[in-house]
């Protein structure tokens, strides 16, 4: 049967898998293997194919290895991905505050990259608080250069809660702060942060799926177990109503979550096509236009 949803973009995505009128900029992707799960489209060609067939024109990525393993080796992997696919990928430099040597070289290492647009912070994974002093050099630099900073965020976290994003947003008003996973579970606070701080954004990765960690034999796979949240339907409408469509950006964790699964939540949300375009690409495009990608030294 035909959907009663009148959206022409939804119609395009259902019939063609993408829309010429609505490209996608994926602000949250990864690269390379992940230790805790088999990811079928992890190989480079498969990931690029999956992104492109959903109409993804740009994917901002950081390697799993940089976050969960050897940060220097992993950041080099991200560089390889960007070099190999310069039209598709832009890089995030992963900051691991547990390594003081890497932190001392942070700025010079970042400036030596090509095609990077900001930093990826994983406070939960490194069990170090977002508003702690070791992150300050990265955030100060990001603020000075108007970079994009993608932060893993989760409701109730001791390391990267939406409240901690607000504390950082207060100090660094020029950096674009993307709340990865939108502070999952504590969506109300995250939406308030995005509403109150012009440079704070709600990033949608895995927001379109409930998380019941009792269903995962290894739980949340983070050093400290994350809180479950059992229902998410209607979350996109809530974000648009209370923070506006201008404060929401598209993300998938690819090679994890299918761009079509993510797009389905947006295309069938009770919002209009202009809001869908804001979320899918316009907001991210605006952020990318503020940043000059690195070009090495």
């Amino acid at each position: 049967m035909n959907p009663t949803n009148p959206s022409t973009l939804a119609h395009d995505f259902m019939q063609q898998g993408c829309s010429d009128d609505c490209p996608i900029i994926d602000t949250h992707t990864h690269y390379g293997p992940y230790q805790g799960a088999y990811l079928p489209v992890m190989p480079h060609e498969k990931m690029c194919h999956a992104l492109r067939r959903a109409g993804v024109s740009k994917a901002l990525c950081s390697s799993h290895e940089a976050i969960l393993g050897d940060v220097d080796f992993g950041n080099a992997m991200t560089q390889q991905a960007v070099d190999r696919e310069p039209d598709l990928f832009r890089g995030y430099w992963v900051v691991n505050p547990r390594y003081s040597d890497a932190m001392q070289r942070l700025i010079s290492d970042y400036e030596n990259t090509r095609g990077f647009v900001g930093f990826k912070l994983g406070p939960e994974y490194h069990t170090y608080p977002l508003d702690g002093p070791r992150y300050a050099p990265a955030l100060e630099y990001a603020n000075e250069h108007k970079l994009i900073v993608l932060i893993h965020t989760w409701g109730g976290s001791a390391f990267d809660s939406p409240q901690q994003v607000a504390a950082v947003a207060e100090r660094y008003p020029e950096a674009a702060l993307l709340m990865g996973h939108s502070g999952f579970g504590d969506f109300e606070t995250s939406v308030r942060v995005a509403r109150d701080y012009e440079h704070a954004y709600l990033e949608l990765t895995c927001v379109y799926s409930a998380h019941d960690f009792s269903m995962l034999p290894a739980g949340s796979s983070t050093p400290v177990q994350l809180a479950s949240s059992l229902h998410v339907n209607g979350i996109i409408e809530y974000m648009v109503e209370h923070a506006s469509s201008k404060k929401v950006v598209f993300g998938t964790d690819m090679p994890w979550y299918s761009p079509h699964f993510a797009a389905g939540a947006i295309m069938f949300a009770r919002i209009d096509d202009e809001a869908r375009k804001d979320i899918c690409y316009r907001n991210a495009q605006g952020l990318l236009e503020r940043v000059r990608p690195t070009s090495g030294r």
């Binding site: 939804a10 995505f13 379109y208 799926s209 409930a210 229902h231 209607g234 939540a265 295309m267 069938f268």
Partner: peptide, 17 residues
């Protein structure tokens, strides 16, 4: 779809594509 845990449109578009 797992509605309303998840959005019905997600699993729908995923399968369709």
């Amino acid at each position: 779809s797992a509605f309303p845990d998840n959005c019905s449109g997600s699993a729908l578009l995923r399968l369709t594509q």
